[in-house]
């Protein structure tokens, strides 16, 4: 199981590296821009008269603050995932240590 997971992680790493290493974005004005922003631009292109009728209450004042909040989101999730698997692994090992004593 452990080996399968390591292989899967390597495949994931390759899938992430391929677009970065191959010249897939060289012809673009903005390489690796977000798809959400591209869609917004495409809407404005065909519907230049469309006025967004609502604005965000608050926007991160800079790219740094935005990346801070995205990191926070990922860290909160990753922290809980790590807690869960650490707890369950410890419990599984605790059970494994207890059971031989029962046999004796």
């Amino acid at each position: 199981m452990k080996r399968t997971n390591v292989i899967l992680l390597i495949v994931i790493a390759v899938l992430l590296l391929v677009p970065l290493l191959l010249p897939v974005a060289d012809h673009l004005d903005e390489p690796f821009s977000g798809a959400d922003g591209q869609a917004e631009a495409a809407i404005v292109e065909t519907h230049p008269d469309y006025q967004p009728w609502f604005e965000s209450f608050w926007e991160p004042p800079s790219g740094e603050i935005e990346s801070l909040l995205f990191s926070l989101q990922a860290a909160l999730g990753a922290g809980l995932l790590g807690y869960y698997f650490g707890l369950r692994r410890g419990q599984a090992e605790g059970r494994a240590q207890e059971s031989p004593r029962v046999d004796q």
Binding site: L16, V18, A25, G34, A35, Q38, F70, Q73
Partner: peptide, 12 residues
């Protein structure tokens, strides 16, 4: 939260 690069040259 993870915006990843794709072969289309954009991120999602």
């Amino acid at each position: 939260a993870l915006k990843l690069p794709s072969v289309t040259g954009s991120c999602s």
